[in-house]
């Protein structure tokens, strides 16, 4: 059970990183570190951050509130934010 959950979490994390790479037009998603800050380190503007979360919310069928999303600073924050809402909105998965 736990390994299944961890596996899904890991897939979602990889998807977030792949999307960041896609939005930023980076050739190698591996160059992105969890501690990278979206704005300062990766040069992602607020439109890019919203694009990322909007795509995630569509793919994972999540309702993500604008106000909560504005507190996200790093890749790790984005992953934790998505996991938190995923657990809340899909409790049986």
């Amino acid at each position: 059970m736990n390994s299944h959950v961890n596996n899904d979490q890991s897939k979602r994390r990889q998807r977030i990183i792949a999307l960041v790479a896609e939005i930023l037009e980076l050739d190698d998603p591996k160059s992105i570190k969890p501690t990278d800050r979206l704005r300062e380190d990766l040069g992602m503007d607020s439109l890019g951050s919203l694009e990322l979360l909007s795509t995630i919310s569509e793919e994972l069928k999540l309702d993500l509130e604008m106000e909560d999303a504005m507190g996200i600073s790093t890749i790790e924050d984005a992953c934790a934010f998505v996991e938190h809402h995923y657990a809340e909105q899909h409790p049986n998965e």
């Binding site: 694009e51 979360l53 919310s57 604008m66």
Partner: peptide, 11 residues
């Protein structure tokens, strides 16, 4: 708008 669409507002 924020409440209705959340982050999907940019769509």
């Amino acid at each position: 708008v924020r409440k209705k669409y959340g982050v999907k507002a940019i769509r």
